[in-house]
């Protein structure tokens, strides 16, 4: 099972975790990650996506994760629109019988999402000017560690 939500309104990670589906029978672990907007030098962040493809791309990443680890449910919630420093920007949750698969799949999904989901960031500096964020080499290196082509994820 997989759920992907592109959210134009504030993201509340506590609600994501509280409502994350679990089975009393065989869910032994839920690993989750929440990313936040860092305020260093910026006054706001704006995110644009490709409606339809962004969701499809993240679902393909979750499918790749489920071929590698025995995961039960995975959920990704990603913000779009304008955000302020400190705002939650992305939430990833994964359940499994055991923690190892949940931890690994959560990290894998996050690493691939960053380089393969069509989302683009702009930052507003302290002077009020907007600048597009450049893709970072270290994000690609992190994704490549998993040994899979970024756009086949």
């Amino acid at each position: 099972m997989a759920t992907v939500t592109i959210l134009p309104t504030p993201l509340d990670p506590s609600v994501c975790l509280a409502t994350f589906p679990r089975s009393a029978d065989d869910t032994g672990a839920v690993a989750s990650f929440c990313g936040y907007v860092r305020g260093q030098g910026i006054s706001a962040l704006a995110l644009e996506h490709y409606p339809g493809m962004t969701e499809a791309s993240i679902l393909r990443t979750i499918e790749s994760a489920s071929r590698r680890w025995p995961i039960q449910h995975a959920q990704v919630v990603h913000r779009v629109g304008e955000l302020l420093p400190g705002d939650p920007i992305v939430w990833v949750g994964v359940s499994s019988s055991h923690r190892s698969a949940a931890f690994s799949a959560c990290e894998f999904i996050m690493d691939y999402l960053k380089v393969s989901a069509p989302l683009w960031k702009r930052e507003r500096d302290q002077a009020g000017q907007w600048h597009w964020v450049e893709a970072r080499d270290r994000d690609h290196k992190r994704a490549q560690r998993w040994g899979m082509s970024e756009h086949r994820a």
Binding site: Y50, H78, L113, L119, A135
Partner: peptide, 24 residues
């Protein structure tokens, strides 16, 4: 789906161009 430059096209397809992704 991301494709390479040799990928064949037809008028009914949905085609898009975009810079490297910077989400997450």
């Amino acid at each position: 789906r991301v494709v390479d430059d040799e990928h064949g096209l037809s008028p009914t397809q949905e085609i898009a161009f975009f810079p490297p992704m910077t989400g997450g």
